[in-house]
């Protein structure tokens, strides 16, 4: 039984890392959103499994937030925003897909080497989950720096945040996990509303943030 518990948790956390990789090379916004929805769904399953294994009913709330808010509401909302903005064509990648994937592999290797070494004494389940979680966080960061489109940056941030939730649930018995996931949901809701408002006010011609860099107040 112990073996099965470990294997399932391992499978789910590992899939999250894989899906993060899948997100890295999506060059269309709709596809990216669909993959993100799967990411959130797997997170919800992983959290549910942790809630069951740790016998921690409050984690079911976190799982429900991941499922309803991040796997359904946010992707659907972003779909609508993308359609209204008319930017459902290609994603501009600042860096090519090949180098991005290589960098991603390097980051995963780095986080596994770092976390497995420093957590040698922790229990194996938490140890592997925290290493995977760091990989997901770093892949999310990588996505944020390689994308120039504001919507895909938001998606990158949300995948990063999924990694944090994974870490928080893996740290057995951590208090405030539900509160933190609620706080993050509020933050994300604000970001999404922000993207939407930018456009509503028609202040920007596009949500490509390379346009944002034009103004620095210094170039006269």
């Amino acid at each position: 039984m112990r073996g099965l518990v470990f294997d399932i948790a391992h499978l789910l956390a590992g899939s999250l890392v894989l899906i993060s990789f899948v997100m890295l090379y999506q060059d269309r916004l709709y596809a990216l959103l669909n993959v993100f929805a799967v990411h959130a769904l797997v997170l919800a399953m992983s959290v549910t499994w942790q809630a069951y294994v740790q016998n921690a009913p409050h984690l079911y709330v976190t799982a429900a937030i991941a499922l309803i808010f991040k796997a359904l509401i946010i992707p659907v909302g972003l779909h609508r925003i993308i359609r209204q903005l008319g930017i459902h064509r290609d994603i501009e990648t600042a860096v090519g897909i090949g180098p991005t994937m290589l960098a991603g592999m390097g980051l995963v290797a780095l986080s596994l080497m770092l976390m497995l070494r420093v957590t040698a004494e922790a229990d194996p389940l938490a140890r592997e989950d925290i290493a995977f979680a760091l990989s997901i966080v770093l892949l999310g960061l990588l996505m944020m720096v390689t994308r120039r489109n504001a919507v895909s940056q938001v998606v990158g941030f949300m995948s990063l945040e999924n990694g944090l939730i994974l870490a928080a649930t893996a740290a057995k018995g951590m208090p405030l996990v539900v509160e933190i996931s609620v706080a993050f949901s509020v933050l994300i809701a604000f970001i999404v509303i922000g993207v939407f408002l930018f456009r509503i006010r028609e202040r920007f011609d596009s949500v490509d943030d390379s346009a944002l860099d034009d103004y620095r107040g210094e170039r006269q």
């Binding site: 925290i130 966080v137 928080a168 933050l187 922000g194």
Partner: peptide, 21 residues
């Protein structure tokens, strides 16, 4: 505000990871 938001969020995320550790 957008720049503050994105950089601030990344900061927040890293701080939370540190807190969990």
């Amino acid at each position: 505000a957008w720049k503050y938001f994105i950089l601030g969020s990344v900061g927040i995320a890293l701080a939370l990871f540190g807190t969990i550790l």
